[in-house]
């Protein structure tokens, strides 16, 4: 058995070198990692999660980032975040592809960890978020034009969004057909946000509004 191996043990010099360099490398890696990951981004605001997602904080922990829900989505609506603490977690960019509310919720079925609550079985009871008209002045329908695309595309038409007609005083002989979101019915699927014809959608999905308040005024 030869004894002239030089790498059998850790030499003092090597150890010191390692001990000095390693923390340096770690610190560098951390800094680099943090700059990529912990950038203030989507994770800090509202992120539209797939149907059945549990409360945001718990979701971040429960989701193991396996991407099975995304693979299960027939519309490729579910994407995975690629930065910040939500990295690898699924979200829906409704403006690109909204959730089309598959009746059998394949994404929920695919989730192994319960991050998407397996008790979610009825699409009507899904609460991903709540649609809001964020720019009333911009909304073509509220300006009196016959648009109402969000309303007609809404999978819960006449429930989650209804049209409230009122006289248009500007022309004196037409009707303003204002789309109104009903929070208690809206599932937050984002189809309206996807369909809005304006360059920046005036109807978007925001955090689920639990308390019903009436911000709808004439």
């Amino acid at each position: 058995m030869p004894k002239e191996r030089d790498d059998s043990g850790i030499s003092r010099r090597r150890f010191l070198k390692g001990g000095a360099l390693a923390p340096l490398a770690l610190a560098l890696a951390t800094a680099g990692g943090a700059s990529v990951y912990l950038r203030p981004g989507e994770a800090h605001g509202f992120v539209l999660r797939p149907p059945g997602a549990i409360a945001a904080r718990r979701f971040l922990a429960a989701c193991v980032r396996c991407g099975k829900c995304a693979q299960a989505c027939p519309y490729h609506a579910i994407r995975l975040q690629d930065r910040s603490v939500g990295i690898g977690t699924p979200y829906i960019a409704a403006r690109q592809i909204p959730c089309y509310l598959c009746p059998d919720l394949p994404c929920v079925k695919a989730c192994p960890s319960g991050a998407l609550d397996p008790k979610t079985t009825e699409v009507e009871k899904v609460r991903m978020g709540t649609a809001q008209i964020v720019d009333r002045e911009g909304c073509l329908s509220i300006r009196g034009l016959r648009c109402e695309v969000c309303y007609r595309q809404c999978p819960l038409i006449d429930q989650a969004i209804t049209l409230e007609p009122r006289h248009n005083p500007r022309t004196g002989e037409h009707t303003i057909m204002e789309p109104v979101v009903h929070r208690e019915k809206c599932v937050g699927c984002g189809v309206c946000e996807n369909a809005c014809v304006l360059p920046k959608p005036v109807i978007v999905v925001r955090e689920t509004v639990e308390v019903q308040r009436d911000s709808y005024d004439f």
């Binding site: 718990r58 922990a61 429960a62 989701c63 193991v64 396996c66 099975k68 960890s113 991050a115 397996p118």
Partner: peptide, 26 residues
């Protein structure tokens, strides 16, 4: 976490973290 030919497989450490972190256990 994966599903191979119908069998659900999970990384035990990922499972441990998810359970500890969220309190959700499937």
């Amino acid at each position: 976490s994966a599903e191979l030919a119908g069998v659900r497989l999970s990384d035990p450490l990922a499972c441990l973290q998810a359970v500890i972190g969220s309190g959700v256990l499937i």
